[in-house]
Design a protein around this nucleic acid. Structure first.
Lengths: 210, 210
DNA sequence: TGTAATATTTACCAGACGGTAAAAAATTGC
DNA sequence: GCAATTTTTTACCGTCTGGTAAATATTACA
C-alpha cells in the first residue's frame, strides 16, 4: 500500500502518528500564513523537518493536507456555539459565548486564519460543513428568540447578533497585524484580549448610551 | 520605452487609460477571489479580454497590478473614518460611521476582500499605510475620548470600539458565503444589509439588555 | 498621407512546483 | 537474528506560470 492514510487502516504505527502530527502542525503554520495556493509543499516539508517525498508518503497531496486540517478544525470551531445553554441566564450566556470565541482567537489564531482564508475564497472545501453550521445556528437562533419572547433580552435579529460575535472576536486573530499596528507597542501585548473582552461585555449588554 | 506606466508620463493615451481600467478591474475581480498567489496573470488577461503579454505591457508585473490596486484602495478605505465629525452628536456619528462602512461592504465587496487577504497574510505590502491608519485612528480615538469625558458616550475603549465596527461591517463582505449560507435563501437577499444596519444601530446604542 | 510612436501578437524560456518511481535504510514481529 | 513491512532518500518528470524578445499591426499627428 502506497499510503498509510489512504485506506481505513485500523493500526497506525507510532511513527505514523508522530509524523502526521508534525506534518499537520507544519501545514497549519504555512497554510494559515500564506493561504493554500501561496504555500508550497517544500515549505511544509522544511518546517516539519522532513523531506518532501517523505511528507507525501503520509499525505497523498497538498490538497489532502488542507482537507485533514479543515476536517479536524470545523468541529472544534463550532464547540463554543454548541455550549450556549438554553436554560442559562441570556445575557450571561451571550457574554460567555463572546469570551469563549475570544479565547479561541487568542489560543488558536492559526486555525482562525486558516478558516478565514477558506471562507474568503468562497469556501470551496467546506460547503457541506457550512450547511451543518446553518442548522446549528438555526437552532441557537430559536433559543435566542425564545429569550426575547420571555423578555430576557432586547428584541433583535439573532442571526445578525451571532454574526457580530463571530466578526468581533475573530477579528483579533485574522486582522492581528492591523490590530497590533493600530494599538502600538504599548497596548498590543497579551492584555489586549482582556481589554477586548471588557469592551465587548459592555457593548453587548449596555451599548454606548451614556 | 517599454512601459507606459514606468515613467512619469504626463501624457496618457486614450487607449492606455481604457486598458488600465479594464486591467485593474479584472485584477481586482481575480485577486479578491483567489488571493495574490492563487491568481494567475492569464486569468486576469482573460477576464480583461486581452492577451497576457499585452497586459504586461501596461503593468510590468503581477506585483505591479496588486500594488496599483492597493494604492488606490487604501485612500477610499479610510474615507468613512475621516468623515467622523468631532462636533457632531456622538451616538449619531457612530451610527453614521457604521452605516458608511456597511455601505462599503455592500457596494465594494471585492475591495474589502482584497484588503482582508492582504491583512490576513501579514500585510506585506501595506505596512506603511497601516502606520498612516494608526495616526488617523489615534486622532479619532481622541475625539471619542472627549465625547466620553463630556458624558455624551458611555465609558469605553475607543480603539476596541473602532475595531468592532470594522469587524462587524466588513464581515458581510469578507464572509459573504458564510453569511448567505447561514441566512438561507429567504433572508440573504440585498435586504440583509438593512437588517444588519438595524441590528448594529441597536447594538451600539442600547446593547441587548431588555 | 506619411511617419513616428504606440499597441498587440507570436513564439518562447527559465524556474518553481506538485508529484512519482524505485532503491536504500530502518523498524517490527516472530 | 532474520524475514516482512514500513519508512526515508535519491533522482527525476511534466506542467504551470511569470515574464521576455522581437516582429507586426495600429494609431496619432504633422
Amino acid at each position: 500500500m502506497s499510503n498509510p492514510r489512504s485506506a481505513k487502516t485500523k493500526k497506525r504505527t507510532r511513527i505514523q502518528q508522530e509524523n502526521e502530527v508534525k506534518i499537520l502542525n507544519g501545514a497549519l503554520e504555512v497554510f494559515s500564513q500564506h493561504g493554500f495556493r501561496g504555500s508550497t509543499v517544500d515549505q511544509i516539508a522544511e518546517i516539519s523537518g522532513m523531506s518532501k517525498p517523505n511528507l507525501l508518503y503520509y499525505f497523498n497531496s497538498k490538497e489532502a493536507m488542507i482537507r485533514a486540517l479543515l476536517d479536524q478544525l470545523l468541529d472544534k470551531w463550532l464547540d463554543p456555539l454548541r455550549k450556549i445553554d438554553p436554560h442559562g441566564e441570556p445575557l450571561f450566556e451571550i457574554q460567555s459565548y463572546v469570551r469563549r470565541k475570544l479565547e479561541m482567537s487568542r489560543d488558536f489564531p492559526r486555525e482562525s486564519r486558516l478558516f478565514a482564508n477558506e471562507i474568503l475564497q468562497g469556501a470551496p472545501r467546506v460547503q457541506d460543513e457550512l450547511r451543518d453550521l446553518k442548522e446549528l445556528v438555526d437552532e441557537k437562533a430559536e433559543v435566542i428568540n425564545s429569550w426575547i419572547k420571555n423578555g430576557k433580552l432586547a428584541k433583535c435579529d439573532p442571526y445578525h447578533l451571532i454574526f457580530s460575535i463571530w466578526a468581533t472576536t475573530q477579528h483579533y486573530a485574522d486582522f492581528d497585524v492591523q490590530v497590533k499596528t493600530v494599538l502600538g507597542p504599548g497596548h498590543s501585548g497579551p492584555g489586549r484580549f482582556e481589554d477586548a473582552a471588557r469592551f465587548l461585555d459592555q457593548l453587548y449588554v449596555d451599548g454606548l448610551k451614556p
